[in-house]
Design a protein around this nucleic acid. Structure first.
Lengths: 162, 162
DNA sequence: TATTGTTATACTCTATAACTATA
DNA sequence: TATAGTTATAGAGTATAACAATA
């Protein structure tokens, strides 16, 4: 359920346009798509560093977060929110259920749907993870000023709006 | 060498803090790590949409870009720059070589190293891809004003600096 | 017949290990 | 012995297909 993450260091110094320290020309150094890819790699690295030993992946963490904040939420809703396929949501819920963090119930008025609830153990684990996650995000952003952080999040949100 | 990408729609409307349109509470809606993850998913979706039929993945594209811009570059340098393991760089170079886009030569003064060069066919393919990539990035950013775009890229670069 | 969800499985990407050749 | 690169392979994540149950 875990995943090691390690890689030779990457670096993108900022110069007028693209190049790197030595003499390497990086034609993608200003490509938002490429930069987002590297940014997410860094994000996962930090996640695994913080959550080592907790037995959760980023995906599992995000599913648990949604269930904790929305008791009775349905798998389909989680999939839309997190852009996961229904089958993969089910697999993650299975793992969370096996860990004793989550329970499936069935909606009396909609017998097809299953309603996801967090258990007491799940709520406790979530409280701990929430704290670690806050610290992880803080570490991710530590090179930015507080104004830059606000802009960064706001721009990411606008980037995602459709 | 391709990869389909499709998912049920995700949406994060912006409100004061976190919630979603209906009534879903999204505790991660302001988490940079989570937002970066979604942003990259969108990036890959757009990439595959644009490059459908061209037989390149984002990774292969980025390797070709570096070789095109840096004739004689070495696999190790590419790995550092793109945060790929040496073994995976080799596999991608194999694919690009099989496509006739890239050639391996050996450095006379460093017989261990292999120097990567783009072929004529590769250069031509790259010119086409470069154009498509520019359009893809433009589409990605179309919801942002030009000031926001500059900020977004600048902040991503700063976020990645170490 | 369409929708919701689950299981099973195939495919792709990334990481690790073993190996060759050169320094 | 350490470094650069490659091959082979295992593991994790994601997608597709088939199915059951309900609407």
């Amino acid at each position: 359920m875990r995943k090691p993450r390690r890689a030779r260091t990457a670096s993108f110094r900022q110069t007028a346009t693209n190049d790197e320290s030595g003499d390497l020309s990086s034609p993608l150094a200003n490509s938002p798509g490429f930069l987002l890819r590297l940014a997410q790699l860094r994000t996962f690295d930090e996640f695994y560093r913080s959550f080592a030993g907790l037995g959760v992946t980023p995906a599992g963490f995000s599913v648990l977060a949604l269930i904790a904040a929305n008791p009775g939420v349905r798998p389909g809703t989680i999939g839309e929110e997190l852009r996961m396929k229904p089958s993969n949501v089910a697999a993650l819920v299975n793992m969370l259920a096996a860990a004793g963090y989550v329970q499936r119930k069935t909606d009396a008025s909609e017998m097809r749907a299953s309603l996801l609830h967090i258990t007491e153990a799940g709520a406790e684990a979530w409280r701990e993870m929430e704290q670690i996650h806050r610290e992880t995000d803080a570490r991710l952003m530590e090179h930015l000023t507080s104004t830059e952080r606000e802009w960064f999040v706001a721009l990411l949100r606008k980037f995602l709006r459709r």
